[in-house]
Amino acid sequence: MSITKYDVEHIANLARIRIDTADIEQYTLDLARILELFQQMDSMDVKDKEPLAHPQDIELRLRNDEVTEPEMRQKLQSVAPSIHQGLYSVPQIIE
């Protein structure tokens, strides 16, 4: 499995990361080496192994349906880069 510049651009777009054209080659090489590392998994026999998503075999704990959090808009928005009339501001979006 090899990785192309096109793949790198596509992944960068999915991850919303801008990569300078000059750096794409280096990223491609780095990722290719990391994928080589991944290929070490190929030799492992994992047939019938249930994927392990959580290290502890536990069930989801369920919380009672109660409002426990006080109103805290001011506190939360004190760290926001741009607020307009209580709303988080983002560039105009046309749908």
Partner: peptide
């Protein structure tokens, strides 16, 4: 998302 806010931005209400 609330569009056409006065400041020419969209606003996010969560």
């Amino acid at each position: 998302l609330l569009h056409q806010q006065a400041n020419n931005c969209s606003g996010v209400d969560l």
